[in-house]
Every structure is written in structure tokens, then in C-alpha cells.
Design a protein around this nucleic acid. Structure first.
Lengths: 321, 321
DNA sequence: TTGTAAGCGTTATCAC
DNA sequence: GTGATAACGCTTACAA
């Protein structure tokens, strides 16, 4: 039953032209009487305009495509919340691409075909093909997490993060440091930038760097392997999840160590001892991303802007005697 | 530059009619030569078909709208992963509605206007208006978390959960039980069903029920208030997050108690002691949801199906002496 | 204020 | 195998 009711049907029943109904729908000038009449009919028929037909004409759209590498990350989810919070009048289409560049490209193309008003990409790493597709599409794009000079972008200050943590490390005077990092090819900001800042601090301290993944379980296994071979009195994880994995490995090995992570996670205040961590406010970051998007959407041909979000070191029990 | 390139442009450059290009695009019969020619031009121009125009014609769509009440929940995210994993050939549009029925209705209407192939709703509670809108839309709908007889649905077996936990409780022989529940108006399955099963077990045990929220922080505060007034030797949280909040409150009050939660969370294996919890496999649930969706999409007018997902009690250190 | 009519980009139906 | 041509449902000049 319930075929699809079109603007034509409404017009017929209201005994007006469909252009009048269209005007009514878009706040054009309509006399109070016809307005009331249409009002009623629209309600009675539960009429919902066909977005395809609308989109076909307007080539405009209050829809923003959002690319999310992974949803099982508090950082990402918080940023989404921030987006929603700052959101004025847009609809977000979220594509979870599981850190897969193939999926990412496909999702982006799909968004473009859907004529989204723009793209917000919470990315870890941009392939050349994706970069080119984005450039060609010529729509507003805001990147997060990747310092691409061609695009507007919001970055976490990972260099500063590394530096601050580096300074803090000095005060702990560790004898032997284990660093659990991720592949910088997978996430440049985390894998590279963040640890650049640490370098100076580590210059005179024995340390070893191991590459693991973002998954706590994997990190735990990798940490256990390393920590069973020698003792580290300070373990630094590239993320909180990694640090927590290491902490669990350390406990099982009955080792005493300091632990330190990065990011803002559900973990830090849950584990005991609570985890010292360099934290960013991802919710606020999300809001900033949206604001930046608004800016570049409204001012065409603006020079690619870059916003850097600072963070701060939260000292908790995991680095206390 | 890069205006939008249409099928017309391709046709002109290839010196064929646009209907030929259309056939080419949709796998119709085209001679090898023209095929090659169009091939090249399409690639050169980076042509992407306009989904609006397509949608307008086809009235069909490989897009499924997914309503998610909250993204900061491992259960939800796992189900999304399950959906993606089972996904054959569809695109999911995710709307995060922050447990807000107003947002939910708006999102659903928007999806319908977009002529989605169907709706998957991970809901906590359905308002009458939403139910009616769904019914009127007459498209495939799969619900999760709400036992609505008019819809196909996938349910966690919350009654069984309560019952199993109830039996287990007996073996713990608690003297005084604190239950931290959520408002059943907000989430019937969790707030009501789940604790129905517990009732029998609690009949002869002194217990108190307190209503709190899904947020760990709030639960912690509410738990602290209750636990500072009297001692409970067993604390049951309606979710893991709630149980962990209570656990933290208990530690700060220096109290000794058993703790027990529900759900599958990042928490259970992170806290110490690790949390005993009745767990569901939400990833698999997501896969089941998608399969069910496929079924009702293909067989019109099928009687509303109901799938119940069992769970199991995972005993961990938090309920051990 | 209202109606008429011309598209928007695509697919589908026919002739050729 | 190919090409006109008519929809699809809506917006928008332009007339009335």
C-alpha cells in the first residue's frame, strides 16, 4: 500500500500547483489559507520529500561525510561527539573504514558521488590516491591527524607531547626504558612525531623500541616478550591501550616498573595503579574540527589552515614510587 | 575547475549517446571498441555517477540506515563491527542519536527520505511516534534491544542473564546486596528484563536497588553514597561500566565486596580484580542482525522474526575470595 | 500569491 | 549494438 507520496500528490489534493507546495516546504511566500490546507494534507499523508530529487536539483546538501579509521577508540568517538556538539545544521554520515586505505578510498568516492557538502577525515595516513581524489573533488575537506599542507587540518601537538614527556622522564631518572610504538607507516603522527620529541630525553638513557599494534592484547604479548628478557624500569606506550597492555604483562611477570601512556582513554583511571598519560581533549578537538570546516566551507579559496591542539601530562600513580 | 562531469559529457567525448554510456556503466551490451573508448574517457575524467540522479530513477539503494544510541559503548561498536563483517554489498549510514528520541525520529525520517534499503536500529526504547513512522515507511527494519512484536528483532537474552546470575549469586551466599540499575524507561531490556531473572534469587536475600546512569562516573558517585551508609558484600551493576564505578567507590571506601557486571566491555579484564560479568558476544550479534536483515529484505511479508542471543557468565577475580 | 514549464543526471523503453 | 526520448520528484525562473 502506501505507495510513495510525491509533491504532486500533495498538490493535487490541496488543489494547488506543485510549485506552491514546494514553496510551502521551503519557506517561500504562501497565503495563510493554502498554507493551512497544505499543512494538513502533508501531515495526513506523512509526506517526506525525496532527497534524491532535491539533491539532483540543488547540488547542495547539508551532509558532511566523516571518515573514521576505527570506532573502538575513545579518541575517535570523543571527536565525533565534539563534532555533533558543535554541529549547527548538518548531518554527519559516518564511515568506519577499519584502518583500511581501500575501504577509505571507496568511502570517500561514495561520499563525493553523494555530493556531500564536505569531508571530515579522521585519518592516520593518506595514500597518494586518496590525496589526489580529495584534491580533484574540490570540496571542503578537514583532516585530522595528518599534517598535509594541501588541506585544512587539525593536529594534536605530538611533538610537544613527546617533548613534555621527555622532560618528565628525566625527573624519573630511569635506568632502562622500553618504548612500545606503532608502525609510523600506519600512523605517522603517533609513530613518528610523538617520539621525535622524546629523542632528546632518551639520548643518554638506555632504551629499546619495539613495534606493536594499537590492540591492547597484542601490546600485552609483545611487551611480555620484551620484558621477560630484561627488566625495564620505565615502559612508555604510544597509546594508553598499549601502556595498559604492558602494565598487565609487567604484573604477570611480577615486575616493578613505571608506566606511561598517551591519549585520553577509558583506561587511565580504571587500571590500578592509575596510568600517567599525556592527554589531549578530543571532544574539544572535534568541536574545533567542525568550526574549521565551517570556516573553509564559507570562505572559498582560503589558504589551508592548520590548527594545533595542545595537550597536557596528567601524572597518576603509575609513575609514582 | 573540474565542474561536475556528467554522463552527457562522457557521451559527447566518446561520440556516442548517453544511453550507451549508461549501458556501459551498468553492464549492458556494448561493443568492445566503444567499451574501450568509453573506458578511457571515464577514467580520464574521473567520472563518478551522480547518486541523486541514480536514486531518483531507481528508487532503490544499497544503503542501510543504522541508528546507534551511543557510540561510547563497546557493545554498540562491536555490533557495528559485526554488521560490517557480515556485510555483503551494502553501505551503512550510521546515525548516532545520543539516546535522544527526538534525534532518533529525525534521523529515521531522514533515512526514509533518502530511500534507504532498510533500517537497523540498535535501540534502547521506541517511542510511539517512532514505531508508527517505522510501520508507515514499510521498509525492512531490524530492531536490536527492544522486543517489539511488530518488527524483526534480535534480542540479548536478558532474562536468562538474570537467571544465570541469580543462580550464581546463591553460591556466593551474600548477606546484603546492592543493585545498581538504570531507569527501565530508558532501557527496558537492561532495566527490567535483566533484573526480572534476578528476582527469584534475591527473594530471601536483603538487597537494595538504586537507579543510576550508564556513565561510570555517575555510577561511582551513586554507589559511593549508598555504600558509605551501609556495607554490601555483593554489588551488582546493570552494566560493566556501572559495576566498575561501584568497584572504584568501594576501594576508596576501603570496603571488601564482590562485584558483578553485565555486558562485554573493555573494563572487565582491565580492572583489578578483574570483573566477573555476564557477557554477550556483540560482534556475533551484529552479524546476526545483518543476516536477519537480509532475510526480511528478500522475503517480503514474512512474519516478524525474533532471534535471541544467549550469553554466558564469565567468572573472574571480583567474585572470588 | 500562484501556476507553468524547463531542467537536474540517470535509467529504461523502444525503435532502428 | 546503438540512439532518441520519456520518465523519476523536485526546484526555480518567469508569467499571470
Amino acid at each position: 500500500m502506501e505507495k510513495k507520496v510525491t509533491i504532486q500528490d500533495i498538490a493535487r489534493q490541496a488543489e494547488v500547483a506543485k510549485s506552491t507546495v514546494s514553496r510551502y516546504l521551503n519557506g517561500g511566500s504562501v497565503s495563510p489559507q493554502t498554507r493551512r490546507k497544505i499543512d494538513e494534507i502533508v501531515r495526513k499523508n506523512q509526506y517526506i520529500p525525496n532527497t534524491f530529487a532535491q539533491g539532483l536539483k540543488q547540488e547542495k546538501n547539508r551532509t558532511i561525510g566523516v571518515i573514521v579509521p576505527r570506532l573502538d577508540s575513545m579518541a575517535q568517538v570523543e571527536m565525533l561527539r565534539g563534532l555533533d556538539s558543535a554541529n549547527q545544521n548538518d548531518t554527519f554520515l559516518i564511515a568506519n573504514i577499519y584502518q583500511d586505505p581501500i575501504r577509505e578510498l571507496a568511502a570517500i568516492k561514495k561520499f563525493i558521488a553523494q555530493k556531500v557538502a564536505g569531508l571530515i577525515i579522521l585519518t592516520a595516513n593518506l595514500t597518494d590516491e586518496i590525496r589526489q581524489t580529495l584534491l580533484d573533488a574540490d570540496i571542503p575537506v578537514v583532516l585530522q591527524g595528518q599534517d598535509e599542507p594541501d588541506f585544512a587540518r587539525v593536529m594534536m601537538d605530538d611533538q610537544q607531547a613527546g617533548k613534555v614527556v621527555g622532560q618528565y622522564i628525566q625527573t624519573l631518572a630511569p635506568k632502562n626504558v622500553l618504548i612500545l610504538n606503532v608502525d609510523s607507516k600506519l600512523d605517522w603522527a603517533v609513530g613518528y612525531e610523538r617520539f621525535q620529541g622524546l629523542k632528546a630525553a632518551l639520548a643518554n638513557i638506555p632504551h629499546q623500541e619495539i613495534i606493536t599494534t594499537f590492540k591492547r592484547q597484542t601490546a600485552k604479548l609483545d611487551a611480555a616478550k620484551a620484558m621477560s628478557q630484561q627488566h625495564y624500569d620505565l615502559v612508555i606506550g604510544a597509546t594508553d591501550a598499549i601502556a595498559v597492555g604492558a602494565m598487565q604483562a609487567g604484573f604477570e611477570l611480577n615486575q616493578q616498573s613505571y608506566y606511561l601512556g598517551f591519549g585520553q582513554s577509558v583506561y587511565s583511571e580504571i587500571v590500578s595503579p592509575e596510568l600517567t598519560s599525556f592527554e589531549f581533549n578530543f571532544f574539544e578537538t572535534g568541536e574545533q574540527i567542525y568550526d574549521l570546516f565551517q570556516k573553509i566551507r564559507n570562505e572559498a579559496n582560503i589558504r589551508p589552515l592548520k590548527i594545533v591542539i595542545p595537550g597536557q601530562l596528567i601524572r597518576r600513580a603509575s609513575t609514582k614510587k
